[in-house]
C-alpha cells in the first residue's frame, strides 16, 4: 500500500466531508419520522429525488435559481408530508407496515418521475456548477459546500428547536408517550402532522442539493438507501444531529479508504461501522 500525498488525502477527505453532509441531510427527515413518528419512511428517498427533478425542471426550463426553487419545493413537500401522515394515521399503519407502504409509495414516485422525465439521465447545468474556492492546493466546490452548510444549519436548528422551544418539547413528549402528552393538553395529531411535514420538507431540500451536484436518474433513488440508513441508525433514531455526524464519519471513512486502498472497499466501511455500533451500543439505536 502506497501512502497518498497530503494533497490527495486532503482533497479526498474534503470530498468525504461533503458527501457525508449530504448523507446527513438525507438522513435528517428519515431519522425524525423513524424515531419520533415510528414510521420507517422509504418514500423519503423518492421524495428527495422528486425534489431534485423539480429543481432541475424549474431551473432548466423556468430559469429559476436552483436555491430559490426551495421556496416552492419546501412548502409543497411540507404539505405532501402532512398528507402522508394523515393517511398513515387514518389507516392506523404500524411501523412495520409503514416500511411496506412507503416502499410502495417510493415505487409509485419512481414511476411518476420516469413517466415525466423518462429513465434517461438529467444533469442540471447551474451557474454554481463551475464555482469553486481554492485553499492552498485544495478545492472546495460551491454546490457541495452549500450542501454541507445547509445540512449543518438544518440539523442544528432542528436540534435546537426540539431542545429549547415549547413546540420542540411538546414534540419530544408526544414521541415518548403520546397518551401522556395528550393528557397534558398537547395536540398530538397536529404535532405529528407538522413533524411529518417537516421531514418531507427536509427531503425536498436534500433533493435540491442532489440536483446541484449529481446527474439524476430515477433508479438512483435506491442507490442511497443503504448508506443513509446506516447514517441514521449509527446517529440514533430521532436525533437531528446524529445522521449528520454519522454521515460525515461514514463519508470521511469511505473517502480515506478510496484514497489509500481500492475504492471497491469503500462500501464495506458504512456497513462495518453499522455492525460495530449495533454490537457496541445495542440499546442506543
Amino acid at each position: 500500500m502506497q501512502m497518498p500525498s497530503l494533497e490527495l488525502l486532503g482533497q479526498s477527505l474534503l470530498s468525504g466531508l461533503f458527501i457525508g453532509g449530504l448523507y446527513g441531510l438525507l438522513g435528517l427527515g428519515l431519522s425524525l419520522s423513524w424515531g419520533m413518528l415510528r414510521q420507517i419512511n422509504l418514500a423519503h428517498f423518492a421524495l428527495a429525488f422528486l425534489g431534485a427533478y423539480l429543481t432541475y425542471q424549474l431551473s432548466e426550463h423556468f430559469k429559476l435559481d436552483p436555491f430559490l426553487t426551495m421556496l416552492i419545493i419546501v412548502p409543497g413537500f411540507f404539505l405532501i408530508g402532512m398528507a402522508m401522515h394523515w393517511m398513515f394515521a387514518k389507516f392506523k399503519v404500524t411501523p412495520f407496515n409503514s416500511l411496506l407502504v412507503t416502499f410502495g409509495l417510493a415505487v409509485i414516485i419512481e414511476s411518476l418521475i420516469q413517466w415525466i422525465w423518462s429513465a434517461d439521465y438529467r444533469k442540471l447545468e447551474s451557474p454554481y456548477s463551475d464555482i469553486k474556492f481554492q485553499v492552498g492546493k485544495l478545492f472546495l466546490p460551491l454546490p457541495e459546500l452549500m450542501t454541507l452548510l445547509i445540512a449543518i444549519a438544518l440539523s442544528i436548528a432542528t436540534w435546537a428547536l426540539l431542545r429549547y422551544t415549547h413546540l420542540g418539547k411538546a414534540m419530544r413528549a408526544m414521541s415518548e408517550n403520546p397518551k401522556m402528552a395528550s393528557a397534558f393538553g398537547i395536540n398530538e395529531p397536529m404535532l405529528a402532522l407538522l413533524l411529518s411535514g417537516a421531514a418531507s420538507a427536509f427531503a425536498g431540500v436534500a433533493g435540491a442539493c442532489l440536483a446541484l451536484s449529481f446527474t439524476l436518474a430515477p433508479s438512483q433513488i435506491y442507490a442511497w438507501v443503504g448508506v443513509v440508513f446506516s447514517a441514521v441508525m449509527i446517529g440514533g433514531l430521532g436525533n437531528p444531529l446524529g445522521p449528520l455526524v454519522a454521515g460525515i464519519v461514514i463519508g470521511l471513512s469511505e473517502a480515506a479508504t478510496m484514497a489509500v486502498t481500492a475504492p471497491a472497499w469503500a462500501p464495506l466501511v458504512s456497513f462495518s461501522l453499522l455492525i460495530a455500533v449495533l454490537l457496541l451500543r445495542p440499546g442506543k439505536v
Binding site: 490527495l8 479526498s12 473517502a255
Partner: peptide
Amino acid sequence: WLEWEFGNRDFGAIASRLKA
C-alpha cells in the same frame, strides 16, 4: 489501476488519485 463497486456515488477520491 482502480476498481469500484457498481453504484458508487462519490468519485472525489478517485478523481484525486487520477490527478495525482
